[in-house]
Design a protein around this nucleic acid. Sequence first.
DNA 1: ACGCGTCACTAACGCGAGTTAGTGTCCCCC
DNA 2: GGGGGACACTAACTCGCGTTAGTGACGCGT
Lengths: 350, 350
Amino acid sequence: MTIARRRPTSADVAARAGVSRTTVSFVLNDRPGTSISPQTRRRVLDAATELGYHPHASARGLAGGKSHILGFVLRQSAEQVAGDGTLAETLSGLAAAARTAGFRVMVEPLDPSDGSYDALLRAQHADGLVVSGPRVDDAGLATLAADGFPIVLQGSLAGIDAPSVDVDNVSGARRAVEHLIGLGWRRIGCITNAPLAYTAAQERLDGYRSALEAAGLPFDETLVEEADFDAGSGHRAMARLLARARPDAVFVASDVVAFGAIAAIREAGLRVPDDISVVGFDDIALAGFFDPPLTTVRLPAYDLGMAAGTALLDRVAGRPVPDRTLLPTELIVRSSTAPSTKAEAYGPGP
Amino acid sequence: MTIARRRPTSADVAARAGVSRTTVSFVLNDRPGTSISPQTRRRVLDAATELGYHPHASARGLAGGKSHILGFVLRQSAEQVAGDGTLAETLSGLAAAARTAGFRVMVEPLDPSDGSYDALLRAQHADGLVVSGPRVDDAGLATLAADGFPIVLQGSLAGIDAPSVDVDNVSGARRAVEHLIGLGWRRIGCITNAPLAYTAAQERLDGYRSALEAAGLPFDETLVEEADFDAGSGHRAMARLLARARPDAVFVASDVVAFGAIAAIREAGLRVPDDISVVGFDDIALAGFFDPPLTTVRLPAYDLGMAAGTALLDRVAGRPVPDRTLLPTELIVRSSTAPSTKAEAYGPGP
DNA sequence: ACGCGTCACTAACGCGAGTTAGTGTCCCCC
DNA sequence: GGGGGACACTAACTCGCGTTAGTGACGCGT
């Protein structure tokens, strides 16, 4: 009958090893600066494993003032979470980083319409927060950051005093559009991944714009549409774009949205990549299996979570953390892009 | 300078309201059986909000013996987590259920090769566990369940004494295959979603088999292939299947795997649905935007997380929980299936 | 032989809340 | 006017661990 057996405490371990509780604590935490004889240490460790001792998390948290938990705040609605192609991978990376330091990850999905997530931190449930997908209009965040709580933004956000870890959206987007330009396309549209209140959306649009400028192409805002995270919004955005200003190529700032956009292109009787070339962003797991396999900008989702995690752990431990960490992207060329067949129609480049 | 300000404790609230700490606790926890005068209650609540008081999570956990945390164990490798199309949505549902009871969710990704996750429970980090994707060979799980810890399996597993919450895999799969049979296809293959050590894979295969039997069709094991969660494995499985035993239609027990399978069909110069009809399973967010839009079996991922969460909360609270909860699936017919054009080749049905 | 310093360990307090047992006050009713 | 309840509240203990201050034993140097 193992059920009724009381959880062993550090006192039980101490008794069994014939030492005091303090010694047990010193041994199990490898407390620097204290010296414990090898045989005592052995006795304690043996007693602990024999009893199946696991320190009580809450007690540790209360006594030590640290919960050993990192919070992961998802500033998205449930639907957006469901459709997010990289979230699970980022979470994996974050959890892996946490584990190396003996931390765990607590998720806090929080619809943008919901209020504050103060409680997580103020209740010391979590020692720090990784905030994913921050929006420019997040009030509670600013307060928390100003109060000195350890926060790391996954995504950038001006005006908030917290380090940010992000992928280099601007250069990734620019690279994608340069690729299209290099293939001979000139009339290039852009569908954002999300409303521009999300900083990543703004940055990717900036990258699109700067690639056009660098190539001497005009920025035409009738070629730009905003999507809203999911494939359906991409479908609608592309339909609008086709109706208004038939582009030759499109940079879609999210693979999921691109899937919807391509469906719209197909329904319009046009072919990808020959009639309209498409570049996505994210390189989700399914990107290579789409029809056509999607040319896209690889976002290192796992590494992103890992980097955010280590940054937050550093911040929690009081170590210095760079204000801004940008992870590189990589253009993955597949078959949704092809050389323009009507390059001559535009005459020689500028 | 708000940074230096000490966190308010319940004693501070008590002092400000002019009552004792016990009264504060009674008021804030709505303790049944005790009567507090309305004006005292008001004073306490006002003092709490004025001070911005949030009870310390660890202290509450230690004193009350409950962490108010649900653990979510992912028995998958990091790659599998990344490619899982429904995981984030299930997590959303679980978190929503947890929140209604004032609980939070802690995720514990645990590679199948890794050892035990005892620590989570034995350290009372979590009050209970939802174990996703259990495998038949999970030793630690059995021990934990036998020790009486609150565990809910998301997915079924014989021989473990814990309630399970799952989607009705068998009937969903049967429904999918019946759909193919109803369209006139007779030589129907099956690609599993995962190795058969995963119970969901076995159940979906069982559903496939029972649909064949019910229709009087033979079960031919050369028409069955195992995949391994991701699209790449689906691609390889389909390639093997095509090389060995060209089927007319395929039931692929996962949309993600189906995406890979369809890519392989396309590369073989065959068309979906006319040459080979395909039914998937899960109805991931992108299923409707694939080419062709995928006929599939809808798995209510959010509801699944929600159901697992409420079941676990009931279990934690000592309320009775049914041994087995099966959520219904729904066949979503899109365009990856079409009537057989060569039905006559088989002659009239049996 | 004495003092000083390390070494190895222990006693005891504190973290912040939940909770039990107990205390005083007021009102009602016989 | 005195006994008996409800009522409203408090003092004090508890949870399990981290941590500080302190103690005894032993070795080494002069």
